[in-house]
Design a binder for these strands. Sequence first.
RNA 1: GGUGGGUUGGCCGAGAGGCGAGGCAACGGACUGCAAAUCCGUGUACACGGGUUCAAAUCCCGUACCCACCUCCA
Length: 461
Amino acid sequence: MTFRLYDTATREVRDFVPLEEGKAGIYVCGLTVQSEPHVGHVRSAVNFDVLQRWLRHTGYDVTFIRNVTDIDDKILAKAESLGRPWYAHAAVMQRELAKAYAALNVAPPTYEPLATGHVPEMLELIETLIEKGHAYPAADGSGDVYFDVRSWPSYGELTRQQVDDMEAAEDADPRGKRDPRDFALWKGRKQSEPETASWPSPWGRGRPGWHIECSAMAGKYLGSAFDIHGGGVDLRFPHHENEQAQSRAAGHPFASYWMHNAWITTAGEKMSKSLGNSLTIPSVLERYRGIELRFYVVAAHYRSHVEFSFEALDEAAAGFRRIEGFLERAGEVAPGELPAAFVAAMDDDLGTPAAVAVIYDTVRDGNKADDPAPYAAQVLAMLDVLGLHPADPAWGARADDQRLTDAVDTLLAGLLEQRAEARANKDFSTADAIRDRIKAAGIEVEDTPDGPKWSLEAGTK
RNA sequence: GGUGGGUUGGCCGAGAGGCGAGGCAACGGACUGCAAAUCCGUGUACACGGGUUCAAAUCCCGUACCCACCUCCA
């Protein structure tokens, strides 16, 4: 079975046919680094990370580009309010973002280009558009350059909209525009803006419009045509529509498939700084392990809206601990083969919910079996493709963990021996007292056919 | 006004004409000194009203409610 994915442009699940056999070029719109990353941001990253991992696993040579937008109105505004240079603010937020990705085991992209590093490429693209009659410098001398939507008949194609039905843009002085829907490719520098936030151009100093960077960078690193373009649903319009229009108008076929992940909301509302309901990654990681948060995200289909709640996250974490418990009991095994049902689920538009169900089924079978090892090998393989391998060094400090474990093991040995003695003498009150004492330290003792086993109590974190 | 998505059991979340995905919780049983873990069992869920069909959560028509996007947004 071949990989199939839902293409937003055609609104149907299609077989994935790469432009070049065995290779996949993917461009995902990353973040504008203007504030701390929240759960919603990370969902997009995790979803496309799963795509990347799955394609790699199935043998594709993947080139995965995820950009960072490090110059825009919000960054300028935010930096100014903090009394910090815009580039310093962007750099700090970019580091926060990198930390969040690392905490969730989001694999690094092939390349992570910065908008500010690609101004010449954008200028080239804009000049081509002007030459072809699809863009024009504003008549009002502002230094702005606009894309002429009326010059491009298929404008609106990606989101199936008619130009006349659209509301007008408000990102620039409409007097400079031929049509209110025209969007900025280049923004002339305003006196109020810092000199450092402007670059020389044939139309005077200025900075890039939002959409042009992705067209320029996708073209540079993936070529004139590439396979998959992704991002959050909110980017469909205007961002992706505009990217496609400007790239195609410049003569590039651009993306073959469009993938969009749905939102995570809280209390029925999207996460947003202005609503004050953002769950920043650092704050969630105070209460949950990164692997638990990732599991929560992966367990829902990427196109399904998720209503975030700590109750649901608790459930996911409890479920994941069940899987971990099975693996601990099974002992060390190397990842094995993927069950066919898992492969089928993943091939069907990244059906992670069904894939997770296969993991649970395998865990149950393994718990029943005399020899859990082959099942554990399968479970490990499945977790691994999903970026959820518990022993992945990405989850941090395993070496220290092991040393601590050994230390606790030694300390506990004496107590457990006393308890075993008491139990052998049917002195259960002493046995339970010892167990209670250990429990007071946050350690649970379970009696198994192989003797007592201890583990840290399953609290959050 | 335009475009797109949604409403599934106590809860979370899949599915897209016929076999009850899976998880969490609950209850019963097995195992256990008691627990824990594990296993087995227990649910007649698909917003509402019509319709099509031998058969509808799934298709069609209508209604209600919710959400997203329409040039800042993952």
